[in-house]
Structure formats: C-alpha cells, structure tokens
Amino acid sequence: MTPRWARKGRLAFLFGTPAMLGLITFLVIPFAMAIALTLTNQKLLSPQHVQAVGLANYERLLGLKVMRQDGIASSDGHVTFPRIRDVTRSSPTLRPYRPLGAMTWESTRFVLLARDPVFMRSLLNTALFAVMVVPLQCGLALGLALLVNAGLCGQRAFRTIYFSPVVMSMVVVAVIWAFLFNRDLGLVNQALGWLSGGQGTRIDWLGNPATAMPAIVIMSAWQGAGLQMLIFLAGLQAIPTELYDAARIDGATPLQRFVHVTLPGLSNTIAFVVVITTIAAFGLFTQVDVMTQGGPANATSTVMFYAIERGVRDQDIAYGSTVTVVYFVLIATLAILQQRFFARRAGAR
C-alpha cells in the first residue's frame, strides 16, 4: 500500500522536472525544430529574413529524373548522343540537375539525373557501408561469443580483450588504423605481403576510391564487434542447458546443435543486434571525418558527413536539417522493416 505522501503528484513533478526539462529542451524541441526548419531557408548567420520555402529543400535533396536520349546514328553505324550538359542547360526544368549515371540500350540512352548528386552518392555509400559492415560485424561478434562460451580456460580474459576496443575512442582507433592502412609502411599491407609470400601489389587503402570504404568497414567491425559479442553472450547464457543435453542424447552433432538449438534460442538476440548495428552503421561519421574527409572523390562521404558539411561547415542549417530528417526517416523505416522480418521468421518456425 502506497502511503498518502507517495501519492502526491506535486512531489513527483518536482523530482522529475530537471530531467524532463532537459529532455524537452535538448531532445523534443530540436526534433520539432528539425522538421520545421526543413520548410525554411534558415542559415546560422544571415542578414536575410527567414522565409518559408515549402518542400523546396526536399526537392533539392531528393530530386531525381530519368532523361531519355535518342542516339544519332552516323553513316558507319556509330551511335552518338548529345552532350548531357548541353541538354540540361537548355531546358528550364532540367537546368538544376546533374548526371548521376547512364545506361545505353541499342540506340537509346537513359540518363539518371539528380538535383544533388553528392547526397545521392553519400546515401549510396552509407547503404554500401551498412550492407558490408552489418553481416561482418554481427558474424564476427557471434563467432567470438561462441568462442568465449566454449568453456576454455581464461574465457573471462578473452572476453575482456575482445571487448576492449569498444571502450576506446573512435578517434583514437581511426588514427591508429590510418597508420595501419598506410600504403607503403602500413601493417595491413605488410601482413598481406607475408600471407601471400610477397606476391600481389600494395593497396593504397584509404587513397583509392574502391578500397577506402572497405577499409573503414574492416576497422569499424574490429572496433565494434566486442559490443555485439557481449549481447550475444547474454543471449547464449539464457538458452537452457537442458536443450543441449537433450540434443546430445539424441545424437546431434555440434553443427546440428548449433542450427537447431543455438540459433533458434538466439533469434530475439539476433534481431536486436542486427537492428542496433544497422542504425549505428547509418550514423557513420567519425571514422570518415578523421580518416578521409569524405574522399577520395566522395567515395566515403556518408549521409551524416554530408549533413555536417552542409549544415555546419556551410552553415546552411535548413538544408543540413533536411538531410538529418531524411536520415531519421530512413533508420526508423529500416528498424521497423527489420523487426517485421525477424518477427515473421520467428512466427514461421
């Protein structure tokens, strides 16, 4: 029974006020501002009046068009197309668009045009990063958790060591790995050289557009896997040992025990880990800001990096906010889709 004292709402209000005030000021209001600002042309410091611009920021950010061009066949059968820039410049509706990619099919060319090709590139980079890092990091984490849980002597020491990069600052980790990835002297290339017996060319990991993002993927998985490992460990320890004993009595092999006992027992944990890793992956910023500054040739520019470039470094608050609102809608949608996917799979079993 709660005493009369404890039933007083006024006191609860007093206790809760500092925290609620903080959360409202620094979470709810900025979130509302984010949405409102995207409908304006707000700059950080500007003599101009702030004006409502409707959905212009979203059009500028997300505008995509497909242009169809008919080729001109010359007498020798060679097909040529008009220059894209000439076409977009002469058309008032296509003028703000820049080419993103093109596909030629017989004598017709389809050109994908974007209002903001750097954002589209950043979005693609971020998605690529997530597609690479989520399986790698979650797989590595699950492997480490199984290893730590296998009953080896000193398993607590192993657990602590695998987890240790997680508590280190990402800036420190990125600085160390920038050296490790160095083309001529880095230990990554040295190790690859030893493994291949001196064969193969040295990779300029962070200087080459094709390898810069994979390099960041490897480093990020290395830094973060310990976190997911601990979550998997908690999940593994929640699986009743009787299930394993029963499977063993039935003559199940270790692989069968893994597939039919461990994986089903971990299904909720796997869903949780995949969702949080995906959300974290879409927020990729620090590694890029320290190691590559979005380069080379925008190959590592990400959604968050682009939001900070536009919103803070160019002080275009409205446009930067638009990028972050799109980012939030994206991760919220992804999280819901993934939850549904895992829930349906659990239901199907």
């Binding site: 900025p30 919103g311 803070v312 930067g320 972050t324």
Partner: peptide, 11 residues
C-alpha cells in the same frame, strides 16, 4: 543525437 544535432546547434 545525429538526427537532431544540426537544429540543436541553432538552438
């Protein structure tokens, strides 16, 4: 934080 950092700067 990423989703609100830019408007929070204005605040």
């Amino acid at each position: 934080l990423e989703a609100i950092a830019v408007p929070m700067m204005l605040l």
